[in-house]
Design a protein around this nucleic acid. Structure first.
Lengths: 234, 234
DNA sequence: CGTACAATTGAAAGCTCTCAAGCGTTGTGG
DNA sequence: CCACAACGCTTGAGAGCTTTCAATTGTACG
């Protein structure tokens, strides 16, 4: 495996795109490049934060648990995303981070990140941009949860994931039905019912974790425009 | 009115707490201090961003509209909060900003903010802290929307607003029933029913925009612990 | 091949919304 | 000063959607 940070495949989209080679080289530390299996717990909500991470490959979910014990997925992270950087502000992690697929991540001890931050102001720009993006994603989630019904949220999510995976009609969906429900505020059964229904209608099909979208138009119509002609009259 | 930014009552909690007096003084520009009535639209989602604002007094809501036309309140802003700073990253506002009470705000043209940002790296810390806080707030909202039922969300919101207003059992609630619904993903009627029910039970009372909380314990129990003894058995 | 776990399906209960009507308050004009 | 119009709030009844509970089927793994 190539562990030279200067040649990191996600460097250009990551936090250190603007940092000079020699600085990035100092980061290099073989022990900090990790390979983890699926379903691996990376850190837990409320735990003292020691490091941030850059996701080089794979998918990670960030969750929080409500007082009633129910989990909510707040973000799905893919290649190039940064997690755990909130430790720079507070001293604990805000979420529980769990791998959904095997992942390659790069570990960045927070003290190192803090030093870099002080020495290279451009890093703050990159951090701000990350935070702004995360905020937009969570705002979109809140908008979905607050304004749409089950089928609309599920259809919108499939289209979102489709777009995020390069607009290929076939895409991996590393979420179980339960997890999909935890993202969209639904029960397993509700998610399962809509999947089954849409398969019967030929909108999509599924084979061991791969989703094939056959009718994007139908899904688009389901994702919030269902009653639009009625409301458009006003 | 005192328009000297050096003596701004919210300066210490605002973005410029760490900036030297002489720099803050340069900001001063009487025309940039605005008084607005309630229900005033400050800027609209998607509009080109020309300035950020600091809220000196009053309450502002940030909303977004879903494709189906339904509005979602994403954040409630109070004294010391900053809005519109996303214009620094993108070029448009991410939300619609509307006053819920009469407000005093301070307008900060984005070019000025950009200059300051370049000249005073500590400002980036302050901005990062703002963004992190906003992210936490929206994450909390998403958690509420995704994991709780109507009464739990409403009770939790009242307790949240109570805490945010200094833990006084009497507090102004500048949201209409409709707006409360737009925050919590509920219809007017549902919100109204729970208020009526809780008034009958003596949990709270209301007089022209002021809410009096009489039974905090009852509300706390409603806010997500309702079935807790049942689920705690596992 | 059997076990464990995920997904599916059905039926019924429960919650929230929708639609509709009535009530209360505020502000305005006669 | 009163009447009324406008708007927000309340209440009821019924429909519709989602959950809950329970049982079955499917699937991956040892």
């Amino acid at each position: 495996m190539d562990n030279d940070c200067r040649r990191c495949p996600v460097r250009s989209v990551s936090l250190f795109g603007d940092l000079p080679d020699e600085v990035v080289f100092q980061l290099d530390n073989p022990s900090e490049h990790l390979n983890l299996p699926a379903s691996h717990l990376l850190y837990r909500e409320g735990a003292p934060a020691s490091a941030a991470f850059t996701l080089k490959e794979g998918v990670i979910k960030l969750t929080r648990t409500a007082v009633n014990g129910r989990d909510q997925i707040l973000r799905l992270l893919t290649q190039g995303d940064v997690l755990g950087a909130e430790g720079l502000m507070g001293h604990t992690y805000n979420h529980t981070a769990t791998t959904l697929t095997p992942v390659q991540i790069c570990r960045l001890p927070l003290p190192v990140l803090k030093q870099l931050q002080a020495a290279h102001p451009t890093l703050n720009h990159a951090l701000l941009a990350r935070w702004a993006l995360a905020l937009q994603q969570v705002e979109n989630l809140a908008l979905e949860l607050g304004t749409k019904k089950a089928s609309e949220r599920l259809a919108a999510f499939l289209l979102y994931w489709y777009a995020r995976n390069g607009h290929y009609p076939s895409m991996p969906l590393p979420l179980s039905r339960t997890e999909t429900g935890e993202l969209l505020g639904l029960t397993v059964e509700t998610v399962s019912r809509f999947f089954a229904d849409w398969k019967r209608r030929g909108y999509l099909s599924e084979k061991t974790g791969i989703i094939h979208l056959h009718d994007l138009t139908a899904l688009k119509n389901l994702s919030g425009l269902e009653n639009f002609d009625e409301t458009a009259g006003h």
